[in-house]
Write a protein that binds this DNA or RNA. Sequence first.
DNA 1: CTGAAAGCGCTTACAG
DNA 2: CTGAAAGCGCTTACAG
Lengths: 339, 339
Amino acid sequence: MPGIDAVAALAGVSTATVSRALSGNGHVSPSTRMRVHEAASELGYVVSSPASSLASGRTKNVGVVVPFISRWFYSSVLEGAGSALLKNGYDLTLYGLTGGDDERRSVFEHFLLRKRVDAVLALTIELTSGELQSLLDLKKPIVGIGGPLAGVQTLSIDDVGVALLATEHLLGLGHRRIGMIGGESGFELDFHLPTNRRAGYERALRTAGVEPSPRYFLPADFTIRGGYQAATALLSDPVARPTALFAASDEMAMGSILAARDLGLSVPGDVSIIGIDGHEHSDFFGLTTFAQFPERQGAHAVEILMDQLHPGRRDPTPTNIPLPVELIVRTSTAPPPPS
Amino acid sequence: MPGIDAVAALAGVSTATVSRALSGNGHVSPSTRMRVHEAASELGYVVSSPASSLASGRTKNVGVVVPFISRWFYSSVLEGAGSALLKNGYDLTLYGLTGGDDERRSVFEHFLLRKRVDAVLALTIELTSGELQSLLDLKKPIVGIGGPLAGVQTLSIDDVGVALLATEHLLGLGHRRIGMIGGESGFELDFHLPTNRRAGYERALRTAGVEPSPRYFLPADFTIRGGYQAATALLSDPVARPTALFAASDEMAMGSILAARDLGLSVPGDVSIIGIDGHEHSDFFGLTTFAQFPERQGAHAVEILMDQLHPGRRDPTPTNIPLPVELIVRTSTAPPPPS
DNA sequence: CTGAAAGCGCTTACAG
DNA sequence: CTGAAAGCGCTTACAG
């Protein structure tokens, strides 16, 4: 592997000029720049990242801290973030907090501290104040996705708003007995998400003159199975079964569709079901849902980090605007059956 | 952030000794070692990764190249690999090849070359010979998971064997008309997987004296939807519907269960269905499957890399043995209906 | 077992 | 616009 001096020799300039030409930092005349680039590609020169980092203090690497990897939302955000980072010439170093407490501690007390990242992206993790502090002590750009982190800029969809809109979709179809499968409170990773989505649901009902009934609300764990069980319970109510179900996640909504089917109910003939997510499988299930585009969320977070890392390089990405969501109407929602 | 000299001063030794005590390279007397550790933790010293890498040539970082991130198999392997790397003090840098060709080229021609990784883990990607060559030119340990890579050590389950066993499970229950939903050939990421699994299926049938019929075989794309469509086609055959279906992936098997149900067939009353994967959702669907434990595959690959990176540190992990699979019998398989 | 010193391969004030 | 040179913060032969 050739070093920077080989390139300098071939191009007939100093290593300083090679550095400037290749990195874009500092002025180099167009003609020398071209000669340097030619020499570099002729030799197959690629800068040594450790040497560059040591000298400049910049690593061109972003650390991403995630509570789970193999869940749709998280892996989708990762995919979007990784691709956006690559386009910007950055690496993505992944810190999964899936292991035990020791593992988690070592991430915050060791891994993130060894000057290997320029910025940190934190996905819906509830951090202890100590962990948050050690992140802030890094004095590096941080952005969070999915939940408020004190002192950290966070990207999030408007949970209240989307729940309100989803409920309004059902109300607009004529439903009045609308059940909700919410998030379990104390669900450690999603902050206020369960509360907010429930609030939106209840507000929509009240606005429409329907008093929310606790009998129509059941929390679950965001999985297909959890949704299946909750839906089974809600739809088995012999007295006054809801004609529609709003699930706080698509996986729970899919579980609900399967539950309805197993109860002999047709969707949407007997029950309408709506979710939130835009999960990759929602199309297959014909699920009406509010899509939240996690890949774009990941890419968006990267834009914000890049703005902070390279101020003035271009117009900054607007921040603090709620992320876009989009209603995708499929075949799981329809007017209620005639009563 | 204190540097190594602050630690040296506090411990009353040279920086050389601090380096040796903290890294474990070279001899240090127990008492000095202890003093150094105390000084380091008192100051909150963490080694600068770029400086250490530049001086030593080691990065304590492994690059993982994946074709997809947000698919169950890949994200599960990632999870296992990441956690194993963390335990060994290594970072995981993720290179997703989800973008276009340009992105892909830049990974191989730029990102992987900048001396930022000590080793590479490649997940079931079909590499061009150029890409493979640039990996090999790195002269660094490489291990692949999931498919043979010329000149690279690869970890893989025994695809022929597992398909054979899955088919034998159905044969053992008394089935004779056994359909298969295989992988599409030319499915760019899984090498010989489709062919091998089909071969195992056919071998099991022949051994049992059943001639495989092309009418009972349909390829699909490894998704729920693909499995649903293929199963619908196979099970609609009015002439001689199979009494059992072997799907080359759990997602396709789940799609098959849903298809059977939509056709009014009971599982396993009318049709038995078996998959391969041990997918997180297979339990919910009651799916009998051969589990392949991708997290463990990721961890296993890391062990092998660590053995190569630190020879003699411990007994090397055995390599080249097929990865373990395990039959998990649930409620989707049973003897065929009386004919 | 420990230290002095060279060196890893870049980047960037500083000077021109 | 370009170069000479210091310096980034470690690691590791070499010597003792």
